[in-house]
Design a protein around this nucleic acid. Structure first.
Lengths: 303, 303
DNA sequence: AATCACTTTTGCCTTTAAGACAATAATAAA
DNA sequence: TTTATTATTGTCTTAAAGGCAAAAGTGATT
């Protein structure tokens, strides 16, 4: 029995929920799938699918097996790709996932440049702040704020992701420039909502954490909208330096500095990380993109 | 092409270093392997093996591919086993790895009992203090001191693994009972050598770490030998409570207590952990052993 | 309750791919 | 150079998967 073929059939049946539909995908008659899946079940000594004429659904062990096989097929495909593309020119579909703010501001412009360098690479970019995206190896490169999820994944620190407080000159004129962190409690706040919740204004003074958040004027996960409000003088905003760079340069917003630095989390240092699977660095398209992004972003950031 | 079969052939050729030898394993003519491996190479568009009449060796990408495939075949086999043994009585080969001290003192006696409960399980026990043993999924259950290596592995805390200082009554008579940790520096030391190096006598006094090791009389990774020396009054020994239990009970050795507790490492709390892969808990033999060991050891330890 | 529509399964034949065996080619060692 | 060993190639046989049509099963419809 061609076990792998049987597994591929089985998986497709699960995905489509039908022998007939799965058979169409492979361009073979449904009878073939029926036989192969039956072979597989026989060889495992267990029923994987509960069939009736209308619906096909997984048994309990079928579910376990399906999950495992999905992962194995995935790994196998990746290994094959690694070998096939070994020492070839970068090409093919490159799946990149990034936080939306970073993606819009920094990644996409860089990728335009990247596309010109490697026209044979087809970019497939997803911007999302959901954390789950790298979960199941469905992406070649991910850009996230913080943490390396596991040992097989390599994390490269791209740039600082620390939040800084800013306000428009107009706002500061009207309400005064806060002289120390504690005073912020009496200022209007524009709060960025990160995937893990809103971002309070925190300040560590002499080993003690203080929440110095002022009353909220607006809360959103949309950075540009909050930035616009800040420019309008509607309140003080904490966001990342890279997201605010253009406003700071044009003078529409200005950074507030305090003796005791502000942050938005008590936990470790914030940074933007590029993540990829160690093994996949061998695939030319992945290597090209990792090298390109790291070089471009680090240079920009360190100059 | 039966890709999986080709991969199995390829892997065996790598392992045996010969098409002929590998062919004998599968009871097929060498020509079959030659053809299948050639098919595989063609489908990957890469040469995996550098052949000559005398030696067969991996190419660079062949090495990469071989590593990947070894892991994939392993996973596949485990998944198959999971399904096959689902809801059956515990049976088959169960591979257990343990630290030697713990293995001899505690694990092996328990396993004798376990064997009587589950006669269909064939035990395959390796005692070793090397850390690498769980590395590549070559074991069902591992028992180690500390740390859960990665997310797919589950760690259950079995018992405390803290080191306590002991000496024989004779020694204490002759050299005096040390009244505080600092005095230990003038006492003779028997040092256990853990896999990560020897185990100094450390003491944390008011937030400050002090190395209070005395001059060494003997250093070894063999606990019983050191214990015997301690009984002979040759010096003070630090070892785990479970390893010393019998000597303490018989009065051959007695525990030394100090205001500031002694340890052998500055890092986190020491404990013995039972490790296994989450998924594999579904396999009856693994579940049976995990449940049995946890229950037995926890009960013994908490009573 | 009976029929209908759709899907899976079974039977039978065809096609494809892997195994068997002998012969050939290649090469490291003697 | 010869020899012994090993991988490869050619040809045939055997095993396994595909194709097609008919049958069986089942949820939905009338």
């Amino acid at each position: 029995m061609d076990q792998l073929r049987a597994i591929r059939y089985f998986n497709k049946v699960v995905e489509t929920g039908s022998f007939t539909k799965a058979a169409n995908v492979f361009n073979v008659p449904p009878s073939s799938l029926s036989r192969r899946v039956a072979d597989l079940e026989k060889s495992l000594g267990a029923t994987l699918l509960k069939r009736s004429t209308r619906i096909v659904k997984l048994t309990e062990v079928g579910q376990i097996y399906y999950n495992d096989m999905q992962q194995i097929l995935n790994q196998l495909e990746q290994s094959n790709e690694t070998v096939r593309s070994y020492q070839t020119t970068p090409m093919g579909r490159l799946r990149i996932s990034s936080m939306v703010g970073f993606g819009e501001k920094i990644l996409l412009p860089l990728l335009d440049e990247f596309s010109q360098l490697y026209p044979e690479i087809i970019l497939d970019v997803s911007l999302s702040d959901e954390l789950s995206t790298l979960g199941r190896d469905d992406v070649d490169i991910a850009i996230r704020g913080g943490y390396a999820p596991n040992e097989r994944v390599l994390a490269i620190r791209l740039m600082d992701n620390g939040f800084i407080p800013v306000a428009s000159p107009r706002y500061l004129e009207k309400y005064g420039v806060p002289m120390n962190a504690m005073e912020l409690q009496h200022h209007k706040g524009l709060y960025f909502k990160a995937p893990l919740g809103p971002t309070p204004w925190l300040c560590n003074m002499n080993g003690q954490w203080h929440d110095v958040s002022g009353p909220a004027v607006a809360i959103s996960n949309n950075g540009p909208w909050l930035a616009k409000k800040a420019c309008n003088g509607e309140g003080i905003l904490m966001s990342t330096r890279w997201a605010l760079a253009s406003y700071l340069e044009s003078g529409k917003l200005q950074e507030l500095t305090f003796e005791h630095e502000l942050t938005i989390t008590q936990s470790a240092e914030m940074a933007v990380y590029l993540l990829y699977q160690k093994q996949r660095y061998l695939v030319p398209k992945v290597k090209a993109a990792v090298d390109f992004l790291v070089q471009k972003i680090k240079v920009t950031n360190e100059s």
